[in-house]
Amino acid sequence: MTARKSVRLDLADLRADLDAIAGWIQPGERVLDLGCGDGLLLRRLMDEKQVIGYGIEKDPAGVLACLKSGVNVIQVNLERGLAGFEDGAFDHVIMSLSLQMIQNTVGLLKELLRVGHEAVVSFPNFGYYTHRQAILKGRMPVSESLPYQWFDTPNVRFFTIADFESLCQEQGIAILETIALDNGARVTEDINFLADTAIYRLGRP
């Protein structure tokens, strides 16, 4: 999961994503950021919100980048879950733009809400209208929010906003707040069609 470090994601989306997440974090909280990349978000939360923050990153270069920025980094593989962390150890567990790179989606979502009182999850929306157009034309979508070719994508799960909300309902996960974005700008209507990125604040069942 190299997530935010190496991807060619649109910067406007990335900034908007991080802005939205930062807005949900209260000063002094304990925060765990899964797939933290180079620690950009945590560094910001440490500086702006004085959080006690930890990032999980398995990529060796990401680990070094975090250490260089003075961000606490923990090098473990998320596919193994968050074993060892006690229930409710964090106020917020964040997973920014990397849920689609994890095989064990349901298991990890449960882990997020076990170790965190709340979770913040963002992901690229495969239901975005340009993605649908690409499929109609017979090609897999490639866009600013899905910058990869089908043969080199780190993404292993392909889902839309509607898919995600349906899974939350099925698993009894409470959707506390939603922010939908199109090229970094807020979208409020027909978000499964018009938003390229969605950010959720999730609560325990």
């Binding site: 304990r30 006690i52 930890y54 680990v63 975090c66 250490l67 606490n72 980094v73 923990i74 090098q75 473990v76 060892g84 962390f85 006690e86 150890a89």
Partner: peptide
């Protein structure tokens, strides 16, 4: 990792490689 998680639970600054 036992050491690391115990330190996290105490809110200590810790990195684990």
């Amino acid at each position: 990792r036992e050491i690391m998680t115990a330190l996290v639970h105490n809110g200590r600054r810790v990195s684990y490689a």
